[in-house]
Design a protein around this nucleic acid. Sequence first.
DNA 1: TTTATTAATCGTAATATTGCAATATAAAAA
DNA 2: TTTTTATATTGCAATATTACGATTAATAAA
Lengths: 109, 109
Amino acid sequence: MGATKTDYFSDKQNEIATIAKAIAHPARVAILEYLLKVDSCICGDIVNELPLAQPTVSQHLKELKNAGIIKGNIEGTAICYCIDEKIWMKYQKLLNALFDKYPKDKKCC
Amino acid sequence: MGATKTDYFSDKQNEIATIAKAIAHPARVAILEYLLKVDSCICGDIVNELPLAQPTVSQHLKELKNAGIIKGNIEGTAICYCIDEKIWMKYQKLLNALFDKYPKDKKCC
DNA sequence: TTTATTAATCGTAATATTGCAATATAAAAA
DNA sequence: TTTTTATATTGCAATATTACGATTAATAAA
C-alpha cells in the first residue's frame, strides 16, 4: 500500500501529522532556520544556501508552501520567501498542546 | 533516489527532522495521545484502540521506540508501553527551540 | 504437553518521497 | 527582440513508507 489511511483518524491527528511531515526533512529544517536567521524576506539565495540542486530545493519550498508555513512574493525575477507568522504560531501551539499533555503526576514506569 | 542526504546537514537539523518524522503519521499521533490520556502503562490494548491491523500497529510502535519516544516492558504475555519522559521533554524543547526562533520584531512581509 | 493469547517479524504490494537532469516559464537587462 | 537570470515543472530512477496476511516466538492457561 504506502498510502496513509487518513480517514481513520481525527482531523486534529491528521493536522499534527501534516505539520510534522513538513518539518520531517533536514533540508526543510535548514530552509526554515535560514529564513528565521536572516529575519527578512529572502529573494533568491535559498538555493545557494543549500547543498542540493535547484529543482530539489524548489520542491522542498513547495512542500513548505503547501503546509502554509512559508509564503512567497514575486519580486522581479526573484521570489521573496518568508515565514507566515500566523501559521507558524498556530503550528507551535498545536505541537505544544500535544507535548504539554504529559501528566504532571505520573502513575507508573 | 529517495534517500535523504543526511550528510549534508547538521546533526541538530537531522535530529529535528527525525523527531518530526516520528510524529508525522496520524496513527503514531493517535498512539501517543492514547498513552498520554490513560496516564499509565498500557499492556495490550493499543491494537484495539487503532483502526489498523496488528502488524501495522506493531510497526508504528517500533518507529516510536526507535525514536526513543516510547519504551516497552514485558509483562507476562503482554507488553507494557509508556512514554519516555526524559526523551519526551527533550524533544519538546528541541521543537520549541526551533519555533521560538521567530523574531520578536519582524522587519518585513 | 497442548492450547490460547499477545506481540514481533517476514514477505510483499501499493504508494510516497527524495533527488536531479532537462526543460519550461517569466521577468529584467541588454 | 534577444539574452540573461531566477524559479517552477516534468520525467524518471532510487529508496522509503505504509499496510496487511502469514508466520513465528514467547508466555500463560488448561
